[in-house]
Design a protein around this nucleic acid. Structure first.
Length: 195
DNA sequence: TGTGCGATGTCCT
DNA sequence: GGACATCGCACAT
């Protein structure tokens, strides 16, 4: 996906990312998964957003720089992957919350330091924002990368049959914005938790 | 320099 | 469904 894809309303980007293939070549090999869960963060008025009130924090510069960049930041010591959206220089973003593994399952398991015994164990690879970042070899050092270049990028893959929505996860503090339906999911067993 | 906590994950029952 | 390990950062002191 080129830059123009990301330079749109974060809600549109969050919905349209469902079914896309997230590819990472950060470890040299190609590893990928289909996006099945996203969340939109709306910027200066959204108390859950890292750009709330135009406030900045360490490493949040991509939010204020341009659309179509990675924004990787740590929560509970673990990196989470966002993509920055429009308008450029306004702090809006989409959090990637879960993937269905597609390519490089062996590599993912190694990076996650877990063993895959059966089909069910595949869900442990990328079903959660910190899990997928780890499985794709994405860390804080990949903050601010241009998604239209690499080594992290999106490709066309599938069209979701239907899109489910729910409130966002873990933003109870966000006041009026905490209950908005800004989480988007495919009907997939690989979501981080049921809506 | 200290303290509290989170856009989490894992293990246990 | 619940406890807790965890660690970088924001904010207070």
């Amino acid at each position: 996906m080129g830059k123009e894809f990301f330079c749109r309303d974060p809600v549109l980007v969050a919905v349209d990312l469902l079914g896309k293939l997230l590819v990472s070549e950060t470890t040299g090999a190609r590893v990928s998964g289909m996006v099945v869960e996203t969340e939109a963060y709306l910027g200066v008025n959204d108390r859950a957003s890292h750009g709330y009130g135009w406030k900045r924090r360490k490493g949040s510069w991509p939010l204020f720089e341009d659309c179509g960049l990675t924004y990787v930041y740590p929560v509970h010591g673990k990196p989470l992957l966002n993509v920055t959206t429009a308008p450029p220089k306004e702090p809006t973003a989409v959090l990637i919350r879960a993937l269905e593994p597609v390519e490089g399952v062996e590599i993912m398991a190694k990076l996650r330091r877990i063993e895959i015994r059966g089909e069910r164990d595949l869900r442990k690879l990328c079903s959660g924002p910190a899990r997928l970042a780890q499985a794709l070899g994405i860390g804080l050092e990949h903050n601010g990368l241009d998604l239209s270049k690499g080594p992290i990028y999106f490709e066309e893959y599938r069209k979701p049959e239907r899109v489910l929505t729910s409130r966002r996860v873990g933003v109870e503090y966000a006041g009026a914005f905490k209950d908005l339906p800004l989480r988007f999911l495919m009907d997939s067993p690989f979501v981080s938790r049921k809506p």
